[in-house]
């Protein structure tokens, strides 16, 4: 077998690869943004946060889609980084295509406890300022009430007093600065999810990674949302001209509850890829 392609032909093929690949990628972008259906949603800074540390060697700007879940542990399981929603149980994981019994619950006790799971890409439904957010607010209120009841029986206890103040701050953050975007469902049939969550002003359907994890407290397998496939949304120059002056305003103190300084209209296209349609400061 003789393979003798001249260098010139190889370079020509390389030229073609660059050109054709760029055409394919850009066609995909056009298709995502032009083909119906796509949905638009208005998000505030609390849901689309700028990167805290912008590297001096990178002049680009992206906003991170900040989403939360209603934690599996109820109102006591409060964690900013919680990624284990109550609804992502074993049945849901099997519905998403995970073979829990074969892969994670076999007779080998070591495997059950330690076998590292593999993640799958599925469609995740995110709800903005809806029932999940109201539930989160209620949880924060219940938590505060519980701490107040404990303090009332031991009014001089400094630790309980500190707990009440912390619970008040938690409620305040819930109301003012924490993201109202919650992951509320997942599936592998995007069309079915589109129909079920048809309110375009409230729901986003995005691709994300889910994996099973062994929950030592619950003694069973539960689901964990690792990340959304696209979490950082690029800000084009035309939108930066509006956002940069707002972002330059310094927040005087870290961890202080501040309301959102800008709002963004975010669109999701036919390939479930997002882009910023408009951005404006909040007066």
């Amino acid at each position: 077998m003789k393979i003798a392609i001249s260098s010139r032909k190889l370079f020509l093929l390389a030229f073609l690869i660059v050109v054709i690949t760029n055409i394919i990628v850009l066609s995909g972008v056009v298709f995502n943004r032009s083909a119906e259906p796509y949905r638009e949603i208005i998000l505030m800074e609390r849901e689309l946060t700028p990167q805290y540390r912008v590297h001096k060697d990178n002049s680009g700007l992206s906003l991170q889609l900040t989403w939360r879940v209603l934690d599996i542990n109820g109102h006591k399981g409060y964690s900013y980084y919680s990624r284990q929603p109550a609804w992502l149980n074993r049945e849901k994981l099997e519905e998403l295509g995970f073979n829990i019994i074969a892969d994670y619950l076999n007779s080998d006790i070591d495997a059950r406890l330690y076998k590292k799971p593999v993640a799958k890409e599925v469609f995740i439904v995110l709800e903005n300022n809806g029932e999940a957010y109201q539930e989160s607010l209620t949880r924060a209120q219940i938590y505060l009430e519980e701490k107040k009841v404990l303090l009332s029986s031991n009014s001089g206890d400094k630790r309980l007093n500190k707990n009440v103040k912390e619970a008040q701050r938690r409620l305040e953050r819930e109301r003012i600065s924490k993201s109202r975007l919650f992951a509320i469902d997942a599936g592998i049939d995007s069309e079915w999810l589109r129909e079920k969550y048809s309110d375009q002003t409230r729901f986003i359907i995005a691709k994300g990674l889910v994996e099973p994890r062994y929950n030592y407290q619950k003694k069973g397998v539960t689901g964990y949302i690792k990340k959304l496939s696209v979490e950082n949304i690029h800000v084009a120059l035309k939108h930066r001209q509006l956002l940069d002056p707002v972002l330059l305003k310094n927040i005087s103190k870290q961890n202080v509850n501040v309301s959102s300084r800008y709002k963004v209209v975010l669109a999701y296209g036919s390939r479930y890829e997002p882009w910023i349609v408009a951005a404006s400061p909040v007066e």
Partner: peptide, 14 residues
Amino acid sequence: LNLSMLGQIFNITP
């Protein structure tokens, strides 16, 4: 750089 930056600019799923 060409393809990875196109991915970033247009938020394309990796």
